[in-house]
Design a binder for these strands. Structure first.
Lengths: 161, 161
DNA sequence: TCTGAATGATGAACATCTTAACATTTCGTA
DNA sequence: TACGAAATGTTAAGATGTTCATCATTCAGA
């Protein structure tokens, strides 16, 4: 009757559900300011680290470049950021927070922190830091291609010289 | 110089990154069969539990109903599932796996399990089950509205009578 | 029985994701 | 110097996410 698969833990699904549970706390706040998750991630990033290339924004904010292109255009149109080309290498796009974007970031930040406090309070500080540790390790999983390279004894990776 | 915010753990971002690292293992497999993540989630669900209402699919597969509507239409068009109205309550939509959908599911399942084994091997069985436990607990976070109700002593929730 | 609230799904509008193809610019090198 | 490869963004097309509105159906109660 119940044919439960032996190793079917559905890790991706649990990661998704957990994320939804957490985002339920932040989403109303961001919506109230007319921001999307992704826009808020980018704003915090730029506020924390200052201006940077689009590629680095993509990496750090976990956004693929084709998505990022549109997001940055809309954010510039909304007056949140500036976009300019790198003078040395005109392939590169430099993204920076505008003054009003920075002001908005500083306005939202404490509210976001308060949301986070709520979550921490409900879930428990110890479990939270334990979870973050495990997630950080999971993020370091070798890429499937890397994994297969390791499996075969001849490392196809670039020689470091 | 480095102005790291005190309680800025970025839990949602880590959940997202971790999920990406894991999905990198599954995505090529599903793409090879022309399936999306969501479609595969739905197929496994229907194979495991048999036919069910669309609403339950949405809940269990973590898909919002407006998205689900289109996904189910496309899956039926692809011959993976059947859709029919409940005879008793014609508001409800009953979704079931087609024969070819079931065959495809059974074809992919062992390959998916093999991917999972790889991940388990790299990450470690103990840490994996520990992580799953924490995620399951995090999913149980009270909704922000529930949390605020609990905070105020007068429960505004529906009286159970 | 009739009406208004509740329920389940869909429609609409916009944003984002995902993959593949392109365009531009830069760099290494013959 | 000119050519081809690599790096960086952008377009394109289709699928999904997100919020709000709407439609059809059912249900509860006057």
């Amino acid at each position: 009757m119940d044919q439960h698969l032996p190793h079917q833990h559905r890790l991706p699904q649990h990661l998704l559900r957990a994320r939804e549970a957490v985002m339920a706390y932040f989403r109303p706040l961001l919506n109230g300011f007319g921001l999307t998750e992704q826009q808020w991630r980018i704003m915090r990033l730029l506020d924390d680290r200052g201006e940077m290339e689009a590629g680095m924004v993509a990496d750090l904010a976990c956004i693929l470049s084709p998505s990022l292109t549109g997001i940055l255009v809309r954010m510039e149109k909304a007056g949140l950021i500036h976009r300019r080309k790198d003078k040395t290498d005109s392939r590169r796009l430099i993204v920076s927070l505008s003054d009003s974007g920075r002001a908005l970031t500083h306005q939202i930040s404490p509210l976001s922190a308060a949301c986070y406090q709520q979550i921490e309070q409900h879930f428990g500080e110890a479990k939270l830091s334990q979870l973050l540790q495990l997630l950080a390790e999971l993020e370091q999983l070798p890429t499937p291609s890397q994994a297969s390279e390791t499996a075969s004894s001849n490392g196809e990776s670039e020689p470091d010289a």
